[in-house]
């Protein structure tokens, strides 16, 4: 089996993640889509690390995980704040700001 298959899987996951951002209305699900994108990236990094025989790629993936964890905290905090004020977690309800 070619290692490229891993990259293909990652690409598909990444695209599904981004489509989630565009299509879903529940902000938490949208956010999960972003997490999926980050995870897909990690798979790419790990696979490239193996191709290059360079463990740095794994370290990069590790950093991404840590950053993603921090991002999740902030993101969920914002979502909760919005939910408390509006009783809705739909991204479409958040559109007071427009021209």
């Amino acid at each position: 089996m070619e290692l490229t298959n891993y990259l293909g899987l990652a690409a598909i996951l990444f695209a599904i993640g981004s489509a989630t951002v565009l299509l879903r209305r529940n902000s938490i699900v949208v956010f999960m889509g972003i997490e999926l994108m980050l995870n897909a990236t990690n798979l790419v990094l790990v696979t490239f690390a193996r191709m290059h025989g360079d463990i740095t790629g794994q370290l990069l993936a590790f950093f991404v995980m840590v950053v993603a964890a921090a991002e999740v905290v902030v993101g969920l905090a914002i979502i909760i704040t919005i939910f408390r004020a509006r009783r809705s977690a739909s991204v479409d309800d958040v559109n007071l700001l427009q021209s």
Partner: peptide, 17 residues
């Protein structure tokens, strides 16, 4: 809060890209 939400969502989308 809406600004924060939009900024966050689009920002993390862009940073994922």
């Amino acid at each position: 809060q809406e600004a924060a939400f939009k900024y966050f969502l689009l920002g993390s989308f862009a940073s994922a890209l």
